[in-house]
Measured scan of single mutants.
Amino acid sequence: VTTYKLVINGKTLKGETTTKAVDAETSEKAFKQYANDNGVDGVWTYDDATKTFTVTEMV
């Protein structure tokens, strides 16, 4: 189990959250659901070296 981080650069929501998951794909699903639940829709990137997802909304 690995800890993954999500950085949110939204128009109205900014911040970070973490989750523990067995792999990046599992954490990505959880993070995308979290973003969707909070009305964040944007461009996703992933940095495997830091286990960090970033979602950026276009303004």
Rank of each mutant, 00 (worst) to 15 (best):
E28L: 15
M58A: 11
D47V: 05
F31Q: 01
T52P: 00
N9Q: 10
F53P: 00
G10M: 14
E57P: 07
A30V: 15
W44A: 01
A21N: 05
N36C: 14
T17S: 08
T2G: 08
E16I: 13
T19N: 11
M58T: 13
V22N: 09
A35C: 15
D41P: 03
K51A: 05
T18H: 10
T26W: 06
G42W: 06
A30F: 15
T3V: 13
T3W: 11
Y4L: 02
D47W: 03
G42T: 02
T3R: 07
S27N: 01
Y46N: 00
K32S: 03
T56D: 09
A24L: 11
N9P: 02
V1W: 14
E28C: 15
D41Y: 14
E28Y: 15
T52F: 01
T50Q: 05
K11P: 08
W44S: 00
K32Q: 07
V43D: 07
T3P: 04
K11Q: 11
D37A: 12
D37P: 02
K20W: 12
N36G: 08
A30N: 08
M58V: 13
T19K: 07
T50L: 07
K5I: 11
T54D: 01
G39T: 03
G39K: 07
E16C: 15
T52Y: 01
A49D: 11
T52I: 05
W44R: 00
V40M: 05
T52W: 02
T2H: 14
T3C: 13
Y46K: 01
T26F: 05
A35Q: 01
A30D: 06
A30Y: 15
E25R: 12
T19C: 15
G15V: 14
N36L: 15
T45L: 06
T52S: 03
L13P: 04
V55Q: 00
Y4A: 02
D37V: 09
V55F: 03
Y4F: 11
G42S: 01
T12W: 13
K29G: 05
D23C: 05
F53H: 03
N38W: 13
K5M: 07
E28P: 01
V40C: 05
T17V: 15
T50M: 05
Y4Q: 02
Y34R: 01
A21D: 04
A21I: 03
K32W: 07
A35L: 10
N9R: 11
Y34D: 01
F31C: 02
T17E: 05
G15M: 15
T12M: 10
M58W: 13
T12G: 09
A30R: 14
V59S: 13
G42P: 00
L13Y: 15
K51F: 09
K14P: 06
V1E: 13
T17R: 13
G42L: 02
A24D: 05
S27L: 04
K51M: 06
A24C: 14
K51T: 03
D47F: 04
A35K: 02
K11C: 14
G10C: 14
E25F: 12
V59W: 13
K5R: 13
T45F: 08
D47I: 04
K32R: 15
D23T: 06
D47Q: 04
T18N: 06
D23R: 04
G10Q: 05
A35W: 02
A35T: 07
E28H: 12
N38F: 14
T52R: 02
A49N: 10
V59I: 12
T19I: 15
V59F: 12
G39D: 07
D48Q: 09
A30T: 14
Y46P: 00
S27I: 08
V55E: 00
D47P: 00
K51W: 05
T56Y: 08
E28W: 15
D41S: 13
A21M: 04
F31A: 01
N36D: 11
T54C: 05
T52N: 00
D41Q: 13
K29A: 11
D23E: 03
D48P: 14
E28D: 04
V1L: 15
T52V: 05
K5L: 07
A24V: 13
K51I: 02
G42F: 03
E16K: 07
I8D: 01
A21Y: 05
Y34F: 12
Y46D: 00
T18V: 09
K20T: 14
T50R: 05
A30M: 14
E57W: 08
D37S: 09
V1M: 15
D47M: 03
K32P: 00
F31M: 03
F53T: 00
V22Y: 12
K5F: 13
A49C: 09
V1K: 11
T2A: 10
K5A: 04
L6D: 02
G15K: 12
T45P: 00
L13T: 09
T18A: 06
T2I: 14
G15F: 15
Y4V: 03
T45I: 07
I8P: 00
D48Y: 07
T2E: 11
V59N: 12
K51Y: 09
I8Y: 06
V43T: 10
D23Q: 03
E25I: 12
K29C: 07
F31D: 00
A24Y: 15
T26Q: 12
D48K: 09
V22S: 10
